[in-house]
């Protein structure tokens, strides 16, 4: 299988200027790759830097050292560590998806539109995107009466399912999953496992943080222990 994502010598620390320039090392010498159709899970205790790695890949954290190479559908490879903001935005639209732990609620926008938005920004017709959004919301057992409402008042579990639907609706060659099942019941965890299997079949390269052993068991092809990349403090 071809490599979609490769990290080489990636290092990151936070420099806390407000605390007399204290250096807070996060990770160092990170190196691994993820192939198309593979789901790799980052392991290790909390604080080991799992989330920071995902955020660097998504461009949300600056990558100080090393290279993060991602191969888009056209075969073009981009180093995210050095990408201009504009290119990063284009990659987020077409190449890298990210399912975070929490839904970023946008005031007054209906759940169905929040879910449909990634597809619309990839150029799908709004009606078609809504259709697909409703299918996903139904599959994730989000009650139909909620679809037209803004999710600000939804329960944590409902928000998380809206978030998952949004993360899975569009096709991205690389998908980052940050605790997607954290607040879900068994039934919905099973749906997420199904969704991940579907993405695998579509050749999507996935990198995940998963504490749920059961889900991890069912979807992980490999587990990389992030503690190995711990920077010397």
């Amino acid at each position: 299988m071809r490599t979609r994502l490769r990290l080489a010598d990636v290092g990151k620390s936070f420099k806390m200027h407000l605390q007399e320039g204290a250096e807070l090392p996060v990770v160092a010498d990170v190196g691994f790759s993820v192939a198309a159709g593979e789901c790799v899970v980052l392991g290790g205790p909390s604080g080991a830097g799992k989330s920071s790695i995902l955020k660097m890949i998504y461009g949300n954290y600056a990558c100080e050292k090393g290279r993060i190479l991602i191969t888009a559908d056209g075969g073009e490879t981009v180093d995210i560590a050095a990408a201009q903001p504009r290119r990063m935005l284009a990659l987020r639209r077409s190449t890298i998806g990210y399912v975070s732990q929490f839904l970023k609620v946008i005031p007054r926008v209906a759940a169905v539109d929040i879910v449909a938005e990634p597809l619309v920004s990839q150029g799908a017709a709004r009606d078609e995107a809504r259709e697909k959004a409703m299918t996903l919301l139904r599959r994730l057992n989000v009650p139909e009466r909620l679809w037209r409402l803004a999710p600000a008042t939804f329960s944590g579990g409902e928000q998380q399912r809206v978030n998952i639907a949004r993360g899975f609706i569009a096709h991205y060659p690389v998908l980052l999953l940050d605790e997607p099942t954290a607040s879900l019941d068994a039934e919905n965890r099973a749906v997420v496992v199904d969704l991940v299997q579907g993405k695998k079949a579509d050749g999507v390269a996935m990198l995940a943080i998963l504490h749920d052993e059961d889900v991890r068991e069912r979807i992980a092809d490999r587990i990389i222990d992030v503690s190995a990349f711990k920077a010397a403090a």
Binding site: F14, K15, M16, H17, K55, N60, Y61, A62, P85
Partner: peptide, 19 residues
């Protein structure tokens, strides 16, 4: 400092931006 909005806000680099 310049950059993606969420990068600047979530991982500010310059001392003043951090402030």
């Amino acid at each position: 400092e310049t950059g993606l909005t969420d990068r600047v806000l979530d991982d500010p680099q310059a001392p003043y931006t951090q402030l």
